[in-house]
């Protein structure tokens, strides 16, 4: 046995001769010592997200549903994009809010575009509603994860179902999906959900929340997220899906309001001169 720490446990060269790395088509030896190029490692599929979008939050109210997401795309700790739209409208009955990898978000955006286009070949108006878009998205995400080549996203699909009732359901990169009257992806699941559930914890609470209060609640959540989620922005989009009017209001470039950063001056350490 070879007792060199790097080769520990392998057959010793004295006994068996030099190991031929071509056998396994891989090598741990520094590149300069072998000429192998691309076949050093197996093909690597997506292992981590690159540019990412943070939380999407959504809540039902007595006459519809509100969904919001900020406009930032971050590259690690860098704010790479500050005018990113993460709420995607599909047809006139669906909004999809997407967090996670932005290139995958754009891929999903194109796929949803294709679905809409294909639908228009046969029919004058699109019959695809939020329920259908969610099912489609779930299948895409689940099939990609099953190929071990995931689309690195968590999505919230909101809109109208086949009976023109309000539809709200989550699906993520693994294909896991669930519905709930209030929900959030990413950091929002920890920071916004407690606030949202304070108002709407179960389906029967939905009737108790009016539109105005719901909007205020979502705005407050976006503010809390901007306070505490380092990869978030104070600029965001917000969609209001109205049940009775069957309309979707799309509000862009909203800013977090009435923020209080007084706490900042009391922070010590992190490079701020000590008193």
């Amino acid at each position: 046995m070879n007792h060199d720490p790097y080769h520990w446990g392998r057959p010793s060269n004295e006994t068996y001769g030099q190991y031929n790395y071509k056998i396994s088509n891989a090598s741990n030896i520094n590149k300069q010592f072998n000429n192998a190029s691309s076949c050093d490692f197996p093909t690597m599929l997506t292992q981590q997200p690159m540019i990412t979008g943070t939380s999407v939050i959504a809540i039902k109210y007595n006459d519809g549903l509100i969904i919001a997401a900020d406009n930032m795309g971050s590259y690690g700790s860098l704010m790479k994009i500050d005018d990113l739209e993460r709420l995607i409208q599909v047809g006139d009955k669906t909004i999809v809010g997407i967090s996670g990898d932005i290139s995958d978000l754009q891929q999903i955006e194109r796929m949803l575009d294709d679905v809409e286009l294909e639908e228009s070949y046969d029919m004058e108006s699109s019959n695809l509603n939020a329920e259908h878009i969610h099912e489609y998205l779930s299948n895409v995400l689940y099939n990609r994860r099953s190929k071990m080549n995931p689309l690195w996203n968590a999505c919230i699909v909101g809109g109208f179902d086949s009976n023109d009732e309000i539809f709200l359901k989550y699906v993520d990169m693994l294909g896991v999906s669930y519905s709930s009257p209030s929900m959030a992806t990413g950091f929002g699941a920890h920071l916004a959900i407690p606030l949202l559930r304070e108002k709407v914890d179960k389906e029967s609470d939905v009737v108790k929340l009016n539109k105005q209060d719901a909007i205020q609640l979502v705005k407050d959540c976006m503010k809390i997220l901007f306070y505490r989620d380092a990869r978030s922005l104070d600029k965001y989009s917000l969609c209001i899906i109205n049940k009775t009017s069957k309309e979707i209001e799309f509000l862009k470039n909203l800013k977090c309001e009435d923020m209080n950063w007084e706490v900042g001056k009391n922070i010590r350490g992190y490079g701020i001169p000590q008193l």
Partner: peptide, 12 residues
């Protein structure tokens, strides 16, 4: 319905 310590939904 949960993932980790998060309750995703109370009715799924």
């Amino acid at each position: 319905h949960t993932t980790g310590y998060s309750i995703n939904s109370r009715y799924e």
